[in-house]
Design a protein around this nucleic acid. Structure first.
Lengths: 123, 123
DNA sequence: ACAACGTATCGACACTTCTCGATGGCTGGC
DNA sequence: GCCAGCCATCGAGAAGTGTCGATACGTTGT
């Protein structure tokens, strides 16, 4: 960890830094959500839930369209819940999954956290 | 593919479908970009690049801040290039990585593709 | 030509993730 | 109380991912 202060030569490749970059903790946090979104099956599940009335659907509505085993769908739904994108609620015999209001907006905002000046501000 | 039309009983759990959901091809496409964003190191690399003047930085600016081996950083940068988020250009001895203009906006828009009604429209 | 430097690629390893069949817990109807 | 249906969890196998040291490639300067 001891720095060699005798070498003060500036590497001649570097550009100017404009602002602070994302800190490691925030990066970890945001990456968790993006990782949850980084699977085509999970994106389809989110979309199917959102396409239902009230942004809510029961598992029986979700298993068939994605064409995977029930255990696999259940696993993906858990990942989405853990990422804070869906909530689960039991109503009688059926389990329902619903979009967390504003969760996807939060994701869009986290993009601005990564690279503010590269995004067009939302009126 | 033959449907059994003798069973017309509606399962009594299902909610009403409001619109079409994301098709598998689009899901795969979007998932590829989200997967690239789903790693804390890559988010930090993106952020560091964006934090430089002109949204461009050379590799020597990137290796040290993330605290990983040069080979690992190079690997992550390749993933970001393959996802269409960065471009690479060689200038003399040094390689420069730059944000693809509008790429992150595209990502934000793909969120709207997944669940349109859950997002506040951008004025 | 040759040496020095910056960076990409290769090969290997540990670890995670996706997928499934089987099992178990919970609910509602008989 | 028992059975049937919905769904989460378990265990396992195959595939993918993150990381590194070593090496190869291209550029610059001598």
């Amino acid at each position: 960890m001891s720095l060699d202060l005798t070498d003060v030569s500036t590497p001649d490749c570097c550009a100017t830094v404009v602002r602070e970059s994302l800190d490691p903790a925030a990066a970890e946090q945001h990456a968790r959500v993006f990782k949850a979104l980084g699977d085509p099956t999970r994106l389809r599940l989110l979309s199917i839930v959102a396409a239902h009335d009230g942004a809510e659907a029961c598992v029986c509505d979700l298993t068939e369209p994605v064409g995977l085993a029930q255990a696999t769908v259940s696993h993906h739904l858990k990942v989405l819940v853990d990422a804070g994108l869906l909530t689960r609620s039991q109503r009688g015999k059926w389990g329902y999954y619903a979009l967390v209001p504003g969760a996807l907006d939060q994701v869009a905002r986290s993009l601005a956290d990564v690279a503010p000046e590269s995004l067009i501000p939302h009126g």
